[in-house]
């Protein structure tokens, strides 16, 4: 049921950006145009009911609004890119064949947005950063069990 929980959270993703009803969206240093939230809401509306009735893990929340709002604007571009990548590479793949046609509009729009957010850190810099910060990961793994 994991993927369904994720798709439910799409409502949040659409919901927060909706307030910026402008022609050009700004995520840190990334600019985004040609995105219609009306369209995204319609596409999500198509699958919302089916997906939410299948979601019985109400105790798990993947995207917390307060956490997303706490992200600095300068990092919003990369965050969005990584979230979209997660949806594209993991979430949509796990949806059933029956929903494939209905999730296609969202999946393709996500691909389109992701490719537009190019100004995010290039993968080399990100890899160096990730390796350099591995000690934080180890500390967390150790501490969470204590």
């Amino acid at each position: 049921m994991g993927p369904f929980t994720c798709i439910v959270l799409l409502s949040f993703l659409c919901g927060t950006i909706v307030t910026k009803e402008r022609k050009i969206l700004q995520f840190g240093q990334c600019e985004l145009s040609g995105i219609s939230f009306r369209e995204l809401r319609d596409y999500f509306g198509e699958i919302k009911e089916t997906v939410q009735t299948q979601d019985n893990r109400t105790d798990v929340i993947l995207l917390k609004e307060s956490v997303l709002l706490g992200i600095p604007v300068s990092e919003s571009c990369c965050l969005l890119r990584h979230l979209l990548r997660f949806y594209i590479e993991s979430v949509f793949k796990a949806t059933s064949n029956l929903l494939r046609r209905k999730t296609s509009p969202l999946a393709n729009t996500f691909v389109r947005i992701k490719t537009t957010l190019r100004q995010c850190l290039d993968s080399n810099i990100a890899a160096i950063k990730a390796v350099g910060e591995m000690d934080i990961l180890f500390a967390w793994m150790r501490d969470i069990n204590n």
């Binding site: 590479e89 949509f92 793949k93 046609r101 999946a107 393709n108 996500f110 691909v111 389109r112």
Partner: peptide, 17 residues
Amino acid sequence: QGEYERDYANDSWIPIG
């Protein structure tokens, strides 16, 4: 077939009912 189906969903095709 959209870009998603082509590049991320095993080059699959979706029938239009």
